[in-house]
Design a protein around this nucleic acid. Structure first.
Lengths: 205, 205
DNA sequence: TGTACATCAGTGAACGCGCGTTCACTGATGTAC
DNA sequence: TGTACATCAGTGAACGCGCGTTCACTGATGTAC
């Protein structure tokens, strides 16, 4: 019943790890099925014992990424409780931390062209992760006088966009960009200004 | 002396146009030199009369994109003058408008893996475009009491990140994301909240 | 206006390459008795 | 404990494909006289 110790041990996971390593090193398109197989010490054909093909392998790497990502977001949220503000800020920070710590997963998830609708499980995990951000936004909204506050969903979209933008532009050096500030600082202050704009933080930092 | 009317007419530009069309249709990696040549009605080898190779062709597409982009940013800035606030908001809007109107160029510039340092001309044009955003941020900063304001360069980075994030996540449907709001509205309100956070806009919209 | 020549944009065939995928196979592992 | 058998993870050879790039060429265009 145990899958380990057969021929390879745990080729399925070894292939995912190899794929992640290659994606980190060469970007989502630099990775090839053949090379992932070679990295795992195995013939390309062996991959088909565990995956439907190239895309399926990337999708599994993305799935594992979403899993970690969702966990991190939930953990950050919980740690900020019972303060709505602390929870919100923590999820933003968690987003950036994830992209830094798991670049291969991040690329597989957001830059590989894999659609989250490819497999139901991907969609569920993705919804779970971003659901955390939205829940944080909802709690936050409760502290804003109902008059002029934007919808919570919009608040979470703003922060998501800023997180993603900071990662793409300033954490990776996408178009040869030289980052004028550390990404973490950039995000921290950006969210700070934004929250002040929502009337949630006094004119202090 | 005239380059037109030779064999093809203006193959160089026809190849760039074909490349842009393919990039729009299939993403930056879906494009191939051979197919671009075929689209332009020409043999792959003919491409080498005008470009050093595949990468060089993409770089030229990106270059033309940066040119249009820089022009649009400058135009938007000028139109907002003499109001620093209007100029700033206009450049943000121009960013989004560019990405919508010239998706092929946008992809070539920001998602094709082409480095802006590849050719001096790319770096210059890119600096010109983002220089406009920074100039707008500097002007804006002049209206903030100097005590707690963030550096102008940081303000422009925040807005750049938000623009980029909105484009990637909500204008394209990257990971099968369903956009909860139109991207334009999202960016407009996001920048609005941010500016309020800087103390530049009253608690009104 | 006409002829001889130079230029050079585009051709077409060929190349080597690595890709993803298939297939019949083999041989190590696990299981039944 | 030992034997016969079933399973199935990984092999190795082969495939067809389209890619980017090269090269000697050809023939339309432009130019000198």
């Amino acid at each position: 019943m145990a899958k380990r110790g057969y021929h390879h041990g745990n080729l399925r996971q070894a292939l995912v790890d190899a794929a992640l390593k290659l994606i980190e090193a060469k970007g989502p398109t630099g990775f090839t099925l053949s090379e992932a197989a070679k990295t795992a010490g195995v013939t390309p054909a062996a991959v088909y014992r565990h995956f439907e093909g190239r895309e399926d392998l990337i999708a599994e790497a993305a799935r594992q990424g979403y899993e970690v990502f969702a966990d991190l977001m939930e953990y950050a949220f919980a740690k900020g409780q019972p303060s709505a503000l602390a929870s919100f800020e923590a999820t933003g920070r968690a987003y950036l931390a994830f992209s830094r710590k798991y670049p291969g997963h991040y690329i597989a998830m957001f830059e590989s062209g894999i659609s989250v609708n490819r497999k139901p499980e991907l969609a569920i995990l993705s919804a779970r992760a971003f659901g955390v951000l939205e829940r944080a936004a909802v709690e936050l909204s409760a502290h804003i006088p109902p008059g002029k506050r934007p919808p919570a969903q919009m608040v979470s979209a703003h922060i998501w966009a800023m997180c993603h933008g900071v990662v793409e532009l300033f954490l990776r050096g996408s178009p040869g960009t030289k980052s004028p500030f550390p990404p973490e600082e950039l995000l921290e202050t950006g969210i700070g200004v934004y929250l002040r704009g929502l009337g949630l933080v006094p004119a202090d930092d």
